[in-house]
Computed example of a mutant assay.
Amino acid sequence: MRLVNTLEKPLELPCFLAHLAGPLQMTASLSPTSAQPSFDRRSPRIFVFLDPLVFTVVPEGPGRGLLEFGERRGDARSLKGEIEFPVASELTPEAPFEHIIFNEQYSTCAFCHADETRAPDVPFARAFESVALRPPDRAVVSVDELRSEVQSCDAASDPYRCAMLHALFDRDGVIQRDFPESYGTL
């Protein structure tokens, strides 16, 4: 949140990603049932590991303006949140948690992530934690494959997708990272 709030507004998601300190550790996957759906290997759902946070973004599609995140909680759970971009003004600390509220008892994350409970250590917001998931092995898109998409991206015909990919890869070092084996799959 501090980084989002310190950057000039309106803030687009590619600009935020470009300001992340590297090298970045990431993996990507096809994810057709996610709130950030991805159906083809050219524009997978991208997971960026910034321990203890994992951010997810997609370069195109209906979830492309969302920055989802999970904060690791133990071996198999995470605290969930989401920020919608562009960000026009400073965000409050509770904003990422409020954006995913479904009702008084659940967040929208509960549709995929089981055993959702309130996070008692976040007293300033209705925050939820639940089972953390990893993509199935068959859905993983390697960093090398994604890097080749950056090189072949045509900014004239696909400006937003290319901006997202360049924001992640135009830096020193992008490293493939796997999820913990303790995480289940959907």
Score class of each variant (00 low, 15 high):
Val122Met: 09
Thr117Tyr: 01
Ala35Pro: 04
Pro159Phe: 00
Glu68Asn: 12
Val57Lys: 02
Phe111Val: 07
Phe97Asn: 14
Arg138Lys: 13
Arg171Trp: 12
Ala18Pro: 12
Arg177Thr: 12
Pro32Gln: 12
Glu60Leu: 07
Pro180His: 03
Val141Tyr: 06
Met26His: 00
Glu94Met: 11
Phe55Ser: 12
His19Pro: 02
Phe47Asn: 12
Asp40Val: 07
Ile46Asp: 03
Phe47Arg: 15
Thr108Gln: 08
Arg2Ser: 15
Gly61Val: 10
Ala76Glu: 13
Asp170Lys: 08
Gln176Gly: 05
His113Gly: 00
Asp75Asn: 11
Thr117Met: 02
Tyr106Cys: 08
Cys109His: 12
Gly63Lys: 04
Glu129Met: 03
Pro32Val: 13
Glu12Gln: 14
Phe128Trp: 11
Glu60Tyr: 07
Ala76Phe: 06
Leu186Ala: 00
Arg73Val: 13
Ala139Lys: 03
Leu91Asn: 00
Arg77Lys: 13
Phe179Trp: 11
Ser182Pro: 09
Gln25Ser: 05
Leu30Met: 09
Phe69Arg: 12
Asp137Val: 15
Leu30Lys: 01
Glu90Lys: 08
Pro52Arg: 01
Thr185Ser: 15
Gly65Arg: 07
Leu24Ala: 04
Tyr160Asp: 00
Leu146Ala: 03
Pro96Val: 03
Ala88Arg: 05
Gly61Thr: 09
Pro159Leu: 06
Arg45Tyr: 11
Arg64Trp: 07
Thr6Ile: 13
Val54Gly: 11
Cys162Asn: 01
Val141Gly: 13
Thr108Lys: 08
Thr27Val: 07
Ala114Asn: 06
Phe179Ala: 00
Asp51Phe: 06
Gly173Asp: 05
Phe69Asp: 10
Leu146Asp: 06
Ser43Cys: 10
Gln36Met: 11
Asp137Glu: 15
Phe128Pro: 04
Ala18Glu: 04
Glu98Cys: 10
Pro10Ser: 04
Phe16Val: 05
Phe85Glu: 02
Val57Ala: 03
His99Glu: 15
Gly74His: 11
Ser182Thr: 12
Asp115Trp: 02
Ile46Asn: 09
Gly63His: 05
Arg2Glu: 15
Phe49Gly: 14
Pro62Met: 08
Thr6Trp: 06
Cys15Gln: 05
Pro96Ile: 07
Cys109Thr: 05
Glu104Lys: 06
Ile175His: 02
Cys153Thr: 10
Ser157Leu: 14
Ser130Trp: 09
Phe55Val: 06
Phe85Thr: 03
Pro23Tyr: 13
Asn103Ser: 02
Glu82Phe: 00
Leu67Ala: 01
Glu149Trp: 15
Glu84Ser: 12
Leu24Lys: 12
Glu94Ile: 09
Leu186Asp: 11
Ala125Phe: 07
Arg147Val: 14
Pro93Gly: 11
Leu17His: 09
Glu60Met: 04
Ala132Ile: 03
Gly63Pro: 02
Phe128Met: 10
Met26Trp: 04
Arg147Trp: 13
Glu116Met: 07
Asp172Glu: 13
Ser182Asp: 02
Pro44Leu: 04
Arg64His: 04
Tyr183Thr: 06
Gly173Trp: 01
Phe55His: 02
Glu149Gly: 02
Asp121Tyr: 09
Pro96Gly: 10
Gln105His: 14
Ile83Ser: 03
Pro159Arg: 00
Ala125Trp: 08
Ala156Ile: 07
Leu79Pro: 10
Val143Leu: 05
